[in-house]
Design a binder for these strands. Sequence first.
DNA 1: GGCACCAAACTTGTCTGACAAGTAGACAAT
DNA 2: ATTGTCTACTTGTCAGACAAGTTTGGTGCC
Lengths: 256, 256
Amino acid sequence: MPMQVTQIDRPARLSDRVSREMEAWIRELGLAPGAQLPTEKELCERFGVSRAVIREAISRLKAEGCVETRQGLGAFVAALPGEGSFRLDLDIDPDGTEAEDVFELRCIVESAAAELAARRCGPQGLARIAAALAQMEEALLTNDGGAAADDAFHQAIAAASGNRQLERFLAYMGRQFSASRLPTWDDAGHRSGRAAQSQAEHRQIFDAIRRGDAAAAGRASRAHLEAASQRLGIRPRARQDHVIQPLAGETWGDRA
Amino acid sequence: MPMQVTQIDRPARLSDRVSREMEAWIRELGLAPGAQLPTEKELCERFGVSRAVIREAISRLKAEGCVETRQGLGAFVAALPGEGSFRLDLDIDPDGTEAEDVFELRCIVESAAAELAARRCGPQGLARIAAALAQMEEALLTNDGGAAADDAFHQAIAAASGNRQLERFLAYMGRQFSASRLPTWDDAGHRSGRAAQSQAEHRQIFDAIRRGDAAAAGRASRAHLEAASQRLGIRPRARQDHVIQPLAGETWGDRA
DNA sequence: GGCACCAAACTTGTCTGACAAGTAGACAAT
DNA sequence: ATTGTCTACTTGTCAGACAAGTTTGGTGCC
């Protein structure tokens, strides 16, 4: 009796139970990535449910990223459960470097987006950026709001990069930073001039993109994000602490 | 030049496309958590597919955690799509630009990692990179293997950047590309010289990092990835199709 | 009028059978 | 030996049906 799975009780959702059973089954058998799963028909018989349920269970495993299917071939183990998606470690912060790492990663991707936008954006993309910029100008005049427009500005630049994956990644990171734009655009931010300073940086980014000057757009974007990080109290990481290393095989080549 | 880019150019599955459409639809309409989605029958008509496809798409959104269903009631928005994690769209490929987008994103982050590594890596980090490089040299001599060392090389550079988030993100992307390094290091790759050419690029990256020349390291990394993408048959995205746009408020300013 | 009850009309969950599309392997023809 | 085809098997998609849960409205009774 290696594993009596047959016949599962009915109360909860059948497909959920089956998908959990299958996941545990994959893990317990230690199926390596690439291993083939039984066919849907066999799984139907093994679990005593219809093919629709099996397909829904497999669909869930696919969404979790630990199973891949190919028409005409079968279903295969893709990766260990939980490895399929990327999640930034924002919560755990043992020595305080996580936030700086996240910010640095964002700075890299966002400045690249600005460069690409300068190279590739068309009139409608530029218009969207300009609209967000105008909203922030208005917020500056009325001393009220502007955080949403700030979001829209960065999103518009990401979209103008023409790279949907890049856009999605920045949208994801932007959500993690949603709270960090508030200190710029709340009452204190307006009064202290943080909003005005931020907007000046935005104008530089926009202007570089409009001119199609990719290098300038990247520089302006980097400057903006570094200034923003300072406004937030995040120290930027050290930029230069490298010393030229000896050539291979002299002192450190023995250690893998 | 092998045009089949294993794993990336699979035909789009209907259910995947529908789930993406639905996710975008939820986001664009700004449906708040708790809002009810159309019934499955309505979605069938709207997307012109069968209920099985709709159910599979909803199942994926359920697994992603942004939709909940209750029997007899309907489907509801649970949270904003993609709030908790990031996943690259490798499967869906309607117009063939997804693979290029993913590659471009990777190129951006990886070349930045090389620059940072050049600035910040210490002796032990450099040793790890050198070890992977040496393994590939050996693979080149024996005409056997090298894919694992290739992985290790890029991972070591990512680690040497000193940014753990960046390292994790590249590790995640590396998993998505695991199959794409095979054509370089298999028998055909060794014979055709792809392996040797790739290794020459690796040496340039390593040398720039050792010298602490960040700009050169970034250039070499970019060149390596672009060459790799060409070896894989992925055309790089256009680098320059921008025309300088008029100033705001003239011709296109009316459209948001 | 107000209240308990029930039936009808939704919804999603599950089942069944069928066909289309893609793949690998056998097999015959060249 | 190579090529083309054919077959068996896989997943993908479709259609229709019934079961199970929820809401809604009516119906009869008080």
